[in-house]
Structure formats: structure tokens, C-alpha cells
Design a protein around this nucleic acid. Structure first.
Lengths: 115, 115
DNA sequence: CTGTCGTACTACGTCTGTCGTGGTAACTAT
DNA sequence: ATAGTTACCACGACAGACGTAGTACGACAG
């Protein structure tokens, strides 16, 4: 089955991740599983891509982190929570998506032109 | 008016350019004007982006160049023609686009969730 | 009790497409 | 004269995505 190459989706990891934080905080491993699930295995985000997106978005003020170190076995887990700025970023990116989609679809040929 | 940031469209300049070469060869300046026109000024490709896409795609065998140096005033102009491999690349990218679109739209929230 | 699988990250360096700056050169209209 | 349009190119910087590798703990099979 075809899968999505990363360069295509570049710039959209932000909205994918932020979407999953809209209602509740979450953490890396969980988010990566949800992306895989929601996309029906069509998009499997690379771990490094995900975690570096967290770092970048926290620096930009779109998300905040907090650590839960009360897990069984003294393990810790880093949660991320979306900020108001993050919501705004998400909203803006969605609008940009609509525009982008409109533009790109003008350059998708119908069958006839392809031959 | 909102315009499209380049990182969003990254990876799609190829199909935009190739689309404009599907029926006839063309050249940089002309293509850049057509993109601007067809997108209703929503996407204005940067010159350097365009010309480096030409170089890259020629190296990949998606397009071929030929020079017209019989223009008035001894000027020259470099035309590009799509190759069969280029058509195939275009077709594949269009399919990928369909997939990508489906995936991304699963992560676009309806109004209710946004608040 | 050794080994693999799943969970949950992190560090480091590389690659590639896009972009900013700036340059060349000739024609065209004011 | 000079600004604008046509037509292109070189160079270097940047940022997001990726490859590789490593840490560390628990659970469960053999």
C-alpha cells in the first residue's frame, strides 16, 4: 500500500499533533500510535520527527510540557498541553490548508490531459 | 489576503511545474507567470525555487532542456520538456496527493472541537 | 534467567527543498 | 536617462525531516 512521504506532509505535522492535543494533554508514544490509527497506517510519524516537533513547538509557545514521574517502576513520561497560541496556530494552519488545497488541485490534471 | 507559505507547498512544486509542461514545453519566466495567474496570486513561486526545481528535475530525468537562442537581440531562453519518466512522476505525485489530502483532513477539527 | 518485545524517550549528524541576496544582460516605454 | 519587464544564475543559509544509535524499565516466553 502506498504511504505518504514525509516531504509531502512537511509543515503539517504541526496540525496533526496539535489536533490530538485539542481536547486533552498527551505524550509522544501515545500520539504516534493515534496518528497511525487515525490514518489507518497511511502515515507513521518517525519518532525523531515527533520529538523534535515537540521541542520546536514548545519553543514557539504552542505547547507546554509537564512530567509525570509517578508511573510504576519510577518511570517518567512527558506530557504536552496545547496553549492558546497553539490553538491559534492550529486555526491559522487549517485556513492555510484550505487555501493550499484549492491551489494544488488546480494543478491536478484530469485523465484526458494526462495522456 | 492570505498567501501560501513555501514550507507548506514543499514537495508540490514538482507537480505544479510538471502540470504546466504536460501539453507543451515552456520556460521559467512563463511558468512563474502561469502559476501566479492560475492560483489567482495565492501562490507566487520564488525564482530561485523554480530554477533549482528545474535543475533537480532534469537531473532526475523528469524534464529535458533545450535552448532557443534565436530570440530578438541575441537573447537566449531555456525551454523544458516533460519526459515519460516525468509524466510517471507526475501521476505518482497526484496519487500521493489524494492520500495525503485524505489523511490530513482527518486532523482538521470541526468548529465544535476547536473551542 | 536469558532474550525479546513493548514502552518512552534522547542525542547527534545528515540531507534536501526553499529562500535571501545579489548579479548579469538586453529590450521597452517615459 | 532611468525605471520596468524579460530571463536567468550563483552562493550560502536555514529548518524540518530522517537515519542511526543508545538508554532504561517491565512483562512474558522459553
Amino acid at each position: 500500500m502506498a504511504e505518504i512521504s514525509s516531504d509531502v506532509i512537511r509543515g503539517y505535522n504541526d496540525i496533526i499533533i496539535l489536533y490530538l492535543l485539542l481536547t486533552d494533554p498527551s505524550y509522544g508514544y501515545e500520539i504516534s500510535k493515534q496518528i497511525r490509527l487515525m490514518s489507518e497506517d497511511k502515515y507513521i510519524i518517525k519518532e525523531t520527527t515527533l520529538y523534535s516537533a515537540f521541542t520546536r513547538m514548545e519553543k514557539n509557545g504552542f505547547i507546554e510540557s509537564f512530567v509525570d514521574d509517578d508511573l510504576a517502576g519510577g518511570k517518567k513520561r512527558t506530557y504536552y498541553r496545547i496553549t492558546p497560541a497553539g490553538r491559534e496556530h492550529y486555526r491559522a494552519k487549517c485556513e492555510e490548508w484550505t487555501l493550499t488545497k484549492e491551489v494544488i488541485e488546480k494543478f491536478i490534471a484530469d485523465e484526458g490531459r494526462l495522456v
